[in-house]
Design a protein around this nucleic acid. Structure first.
Lengths: 211, 211
DNA sequence: AAAAACTAGTTGCATGTGCAACAAAAAAGA
DNA sequence: TCTTTTTTGTTGCACATGCAACTAGTTTTT
């Protein structure tokens, strides 16, 4: 079975003890607020308990890139993004975030919390699926044309649905950032894809045509 | 301290017991031989004990992409690359590879091997640093021009050396694949960077100029 | 030692893409 | 409701990039 949360399989009463043992801090953030800036050298791991956020970067030309879309239950922190430039995590909806020192997760619990190994296990699986996601995005970004980037991303989204139909999980503006391409060029290419019969769109609802 | 190998901190005599318990299989591969093809659905994890390999993909246009450079001690397998297309791992030098069922790594050892938790810990750290690497490559690929891709990759390599000087870890041909750009266009851009005084090159030895 | 394979370096050309600058529609806020 | 902000959609233009096609040099294989 797939692990959804870092706390999967841990009973509530155990969880409470564990969080105290970890000195975990829970904070809430309104939409668009900054959860962390300058993520470099932060030895704290954040877990998004509810809501969503984006890990973004502004490079020296002022281009915004979405490094990572953080969904509920995502884990983020220094270890997950040692990058040279200006990284922040911005809430894209109201969020609850739990902060835990990284060492608590990586090390065996000295006090012997019985569910610690479950936690480690969960983190392992979450990290694995993060690697999968990163590889997926890499595959998309390694395409050389906007057309191929769009198609491989759409293909990914359509895979879940036998009717090869899906809803874009973000705005077209954000999609351009995610694909790391110019928005207007992307819109032009989407228009071409429509005219050539590869896709149909209705707002953010998109259908892939089978050949 | 940084974890180099999945077996860091595990005594030799323990290691031997552990590998038996895991039913680990060691295989050797000559340079350029295929270690695995069609990596999808492989429930086995490979650990490169010596040598190097590339995880590569040919997309439907026949373009080769290096998904990942696997150094000694790298871990690879299904979980680390769920991709739609044709993925293989190719030895770039003579290699020894250890294969272990993924389940053995993710689960607690039923027989209670005492060093199992060390192993888990090591895997966790290795996965974290893999995520870092993937994020680094993502940062590079998210640059929109060949120039910016080159410069941010060079910056990364130069960071280790105060003289801002380094050796390319692969051929220019492979560099183009790694950056996912056309080789001739890349060579052209390197020439421009030289002419404009941003870099100096001598074969694969490159120096970044400080402004 | 000769042949084959690979790597580095170049160029012309067509075109895909980034950029700037809009306008209209939709969504969010007051 | 009216106002403001965000998103979508479009276009002209300059130029960066992919592609094809070479040559020369280097390395590997036989």
């Amino acid at each position: 079975m797939e692990v959804k949360s870092i706390f999967d399989g841990i009973e509530d009463f155990e969880l409470e003890k564990m969080l105290k043992c970890f000195e975990a801090r829970k904070m809430t953030f309104k939409k668009d607020r900054t959860i962390v800036t300058n993520i470099i050298n932060v030895k704290t791991v954040g877990i998004i308990l509810s809501g969503t956020a984006n890990m973004i970067r502004y490079d020296y030309n002022g281009n915004r890139s979405i490094i990572e879309k953080l969904e509920t239950n995502s884990v983020f922190g220094e270890v997950f993004s040692r990058l040279g430039s200006d990284i922040s995590v911005i809430a894209t909806s109201d969020c609850e975030v739990l902060f835990i020192e990284y060492e608590h997760i990586i090390k065996r619990c000295k006090k012997g919390c019985s569910y610690h190994s479950t936690l480690t296990n969960n983190v392992l699986k979450l990290l694995s699926s993060k690697i999968v996601e990163l590889n997926q995005r890499l595959e998309i970004l390694s395409k050389r044309t906007i057309r191929d980037k769009l198609l491989s991303y759409f293909e990914l989204l359509a895979n879940d649905n036998p009717r090869r139909t899906f809803n874009l999980p973000f705005t077209y503006t954000d999609l351009a950032d995610y694909l790391s391409v110019d928005r207007s060029a992307m819109m032009r290419e989407i228009k071409n894809l429509k005219e050539e019969g590869f896709i149909k769109t209705n707002g953010r609802h998109i259908s892939l045509m089978s050949y």
